[in-house]
Simulated assay, not measured.
Amino acid sequence: MKEIIASMAGTVLNVFVAKGNQVQLGQEVVMLESMKMEIPIESDIEGSVFDVKVNIGDFVNEGDVLIVLE
């Protein structure tokens, strides 16, 4: 299993993938809001979405797992 993690703390504004989706390198998977700025989280790996660990409105800390790929 491979994980996509939050690069900074913030609130989840949008989740662009769902379980079973294919994710490509560089694809935006989550949009965070931090200090009134929108921060796109891009995948640094490829794979199929095994689990989405966050929902819109959740607060995440830097290093939290957002998406698990297989």
Rank of each mutant, 00 (worst) to 15 (best):
K2H: 10
K2D: 05
E3A: 14
E3P: 06
E3G: 09
E3R: 12
E3L: 15
I4R: 07
I4S: 02
I5S: 08
S7L: 08
M8T: 13
G10H: 11
G10N: 11
T11P: 01
T11M: 08
N14Y: 07
V15R: 03
A18E: 01
A18M: 07
K19P: 06
G20I: 08
G20P: 03
N21V: 10
N21L: 02
N21Y: 03
N21K: 05
Q24N: 13
L25N: 12
Q27I: 08
Q27P: 01
E28F: 02
V29M: 05
V29C: 04
V29G: 01
V29Q: 01
V30Q: 02
V30T: 05
M31P: 00
E33H: 10
M35I: 13
M35K: 07
M35E: 06
M35F: 10
K36E: 02
M37L: 13
M37A: 08
E38K: 15
E38D: 14
P40S: 08
E42V: 15
D44A: 12
D44F: 11
I45N: 03
E46N: 11
E46I: 13
G47M: 10
G47R: 13
G47A: 09
S48G: 06
F50W: 04
D51L: 15
D51E: 14
V52Y: 13
V52A: 11
V52R: 15
K53E: 01
K53I: 01
V54P: 05
V54I: 11
N55I: 09
N55T: 11
I56E: 14
I56C: 05
I56M: 11
D58M: 07
F59Q: 14
F59G: 04
F59E: 04
V60Q: 07
V60I: 10
V60H: 12
N61K: 15
N61H: 14
N61I: 00
N61Y: 08
E62W: 06
G63C: 03
D64C: 02
L66T: 00
I67R: 01
V68S: 04
E70D: 13
